[in-house]
């Protein structure tokens, strides 16, 4: 048995509770999260946990966006699809994704907390780097991805949707490849190959019953399918939003002038020329010279 195996087995056991927890939380908004120690964590420790989790989140989205549009960066290399042209990283697609997820979909705490708590329970075996050891603090309870999330939840911190989605992608990464729990970078999802990321997406899109299917089982309309529906929507949107942002002008757009400050990465890739924006010399006449039709 590998070192990761006990963690994986524990994780899968806990994941089975996901749907029940999520469903119950809607009916009982103050539902306790799973895996919490219940105690508060010193604010100094939280100050260490937050940036560490943000690092994991950013790395997860870096790994996600190059899954849609790989480039010259280390994330593309790690997934096995290095390219000689720029891609999502150069187009700052991660920033686009974080903003889009955290501002578009309202994500009530009643859903966020139990989902994050359940996901955290399976991420206890994923170490993260905290620098507080130098301060003499005992960080043993929070030096894993799961422990860090638990610490936030125990202190009533709001978890944005982007963080929960990052946890979900990392949870899926562990299911696809348990060995992704450790290694370079901070995010298990970022340690996957392209094919492994695709496998993670197949689980997400397939409405995998272990993960989300049970969430709908005991809730009436209009709540029915809210959790699994959100999962399906987000699962479908992750790739489309990543691709859209990379191939758009977003990263070099100036709101002041309503124009681009340079050539967008996506335009260079696709050889797109917007011309003068106000017109093209592309008129090719009328088909069969017909300019009007009968009733």
């Amino acid at each position: 048995m590998t070192e990761a195996e006990p963690n994986r087995r524990a994780f899968l056991t806990r994941m089975g509770l996901f749907g029940v927890l999520a469903g119950a939380a809607v009916a009982v908004p103050v539902a306790a999260h799973a895996g919490s120690s219940g105690g508060t964590v010193p604010s100094l420790v939280l100050d260490l946990v937050r940036p560490a989790l943000n690092t994991v989140s950013r790395q997860t989205y870096n790994a996600l966006t190059v899954f849609a549009v790989p480039g010259q960066d280390e994330y593309s290399t790690r997934q096995g699809t290095p390219r000689s042209e720029p891609g999502a990283i150069e187009a700052r697609a991660t920033d686009f994704m974080l903003h889009a997820l955290d501002n578009f979909v309202p994500f009530p705490d009643e859903l966020a907390r139990p989902i994050a708590g359940t996901l955290a329970a399976g991420l206890g075996g994923v170490p993260i780097t905290l620098s507080g050891g130098l301060l003499g603090l005992d960080l043993s309870a929070v030096d894993s991805l799961g422990g860090a999330v638990d610490a936030l939840l125990a202190n009533d911190e709001v978890l944005p949707l982007s963080m929960v989605v990052a946890l979900l992608l990392n949870s899926l990464a562990l299911r696809v490849n348990p060995l992704s729990a450790t290694g370079v970078l901070q995010s298990p999802f970022a340690r996957l190959t392209y094919a492994e990321k695709a496998k993670a997406f197949s689980l997400l899109e397939g409405g995998d019953s272990t993960l989300v299917g049970a969430a709908d089982s005991d809730v009436p309309e209009p709540l029915r399918e809210t959790v699994s529906g959100l999962s399906g929507y987000v699962g479908g949107s992750l790739l489309t939003f990543s691709a859209f942002s990379t191939y758009s002008e977003w990263a070099v757009f100036s709101t002041g002038t309503r124009s681009v400050t340079g050539v967008p990465v996506g335009w260079r890739i696709s050889d797109h020329d917007p011309g003068v924006l106000d017109g093209w010399d592309d008129l090719r006449g009328y088909y069969q010279n017909r300019k009007a039709v009968a009733a």
């Binding site: 496998k199 997406f201 197949s202 479908g236 942002s245 191939y247 758009s248 996506g266």
Partner: peptide, 19 residues
């Protein structure tokens, strides 16, 4: 290009060659 890319990454059939 952006809407072209959006459209070509939208599908009910997974990812070509993967699932």
């Amino acid at each position: 290009p952006a809407i072209q890319a959006l459209a070509m990454t939208s599908s009910d059939s997974g990812i070509r060659g993967q699932y």
